[in-house]
Amino acid sequence: MKFPIFRSSLVAMASLLPLSLLALITFLTIYSWPAIQYNQFHFLWTNDWDLGNLYGDPVMEHGFQVMPHARYGIWFLIVGTVASSFIAMVLALPLAIGAAVLLAEGMRKSRAAPLSLFVDLLASIPSVVYGLWGYAVLVPLLGQHVYPAMAHALSFVPFFGGAPGSGYGLLTASLVLTIMIVPLISATLRESINMTDPALKEAGRSLGLSRLEVFWHVVLPKLRTVVIGVSILALGRALGETMAVLMVSGNALNYLPNNIYTPISSMAAFIASQLDSALQDPTNMAVQALSEIALVLLLIAVAVNVIARLILWMARVR
């Protein structure tokens, strides 16, 4: 048999992707190793982040040089990251499916093309601009009008009542993330709807189903893997988003949200905002602890993927 040149070069090229991730993981693990040893497991479930007295003299603790009073615990970051991204995905999925259906099924191609530009353009806006829009437009609107009304009307629903806060918080961060990830889901979905075998749609229509019913009962089930796949991608994007979250989340430190209006902080935003101060730590433990956060964030992304795959697997078994 001929040597499969195409196949081998394909595999060689493709392997650069996992290799770059492995390089990143290796780097993060080696780099944060002292912090992992120093912090042990309570790093994950304590709400206690303090770079310590950066102007003091380093002290020895458990065999490591650290700044006095330095403590690293990130439970509040894990909660903030997962909550904001999860809410964003729950809100983004119906919006994205709605937009994709309207553009793919609801109108003629010639009209859909310019309108789909809107949705695609939402993806082209830099995340800093989302952040600016978030704090100039969204935060005052939500904080002064929408949230007080919501908290009043929904006071009986857990996590929706209580103090409506200032507008900077969990729900605002989720809403900005939602708008950011919708185009990612919607664009892929639209292409997939367009590419679905037309015979399937025609068969459904000939049974007397309306276009919407065809979509709901015939097309969407066929696209289940696409929907879940692209949702994971979007969730990953939300988990890793930095600037926009930094600007609207209220950046809570060392406490947990008690309702959806409370300030939170996400791991990616926290790394970005703390890196500069951490660089001032002469023992380097602060930067190492930040890279340990990055490692934990990677592990969360792994967990999200495993769960999504389990869902797919169970759906197939059934």
């Binding site: 992707l17 990953g236 890793g240 990616a268 790394i271 792994v302 999200v304």
Partner: peptide
């Protein structure tokens, strides 16, 4: 799997 994990790496990292 690895590709999806890579998406979750924050750009600052």
């Amino acid at each position: 799997f690895l590709s999806d994990v890579l998406v979750g790496v924050p750009s600052i990292v």
